[in-house]
Design a protein around this nucleic acid. Structure first.
Length: 114
DNA sequence: GCCGTGACTCGCA
DNA sequence: CTGCGAGCCACGG
């Protein structure tokens, strides 16, 4: 198990038609956004809905937009000018944390205070 | 064990 | 709105 595996688990619990930012996932896992990016770039997970993970501004790496757009259309995720309307489709962070905790156990950045 | 890389983020001009 | 710079951390070589 690696942090990357946790990233996969979190991405998997993002509902269809919703998106989440790298920073959000990073916060749930108690790490930095770069780690999420590195994990996503490195891991090979065929069934991973990676297009639901976007940058904080709703944009995404240029070489991926072309592949992501069809998925956004398929899931009804609104976007314009290569950027999804993240403000509209961003999944609730608390709900995401709750779902992730069910699979991974207590998360560093989740409801567990202290 | 050090170094570079990466699908990032934020602040400032 | 755009662009630049620095911070950030895990992983492979």
């Amino acid at each position: 198990m690696s942090l990357s595996d946790d990233v996969v688990a979190v991405v998997r619990v993002v509902p269809s038609g919703c998106v989440v930012s790298y920073g959000d996932i990073a916060e749930l896992l108690g790490t930095s956004p770069r780690v999420i990016g590195h994990a996503m770039a490195t891991l090979e997970v065929p069934d991973l809905p990676w297009w639901r993970v976007v940058r904080a501004d709703g944009g995404m790496a240029d070489h991926l937009i072309d592949s992501a757009v069809p998925h956004w259309l398929e899931e009804g995720i609104g976007f314009a000018d290569g950027r999804v309307r993240i403000r509209r489709h961003r999944v609730d962070l608390a709900a995401l944390a709750d779902a992730a905790e069910s699979l991974l156990g207590p998360l560093p950045g989740a409801g567990d205070h202290q």
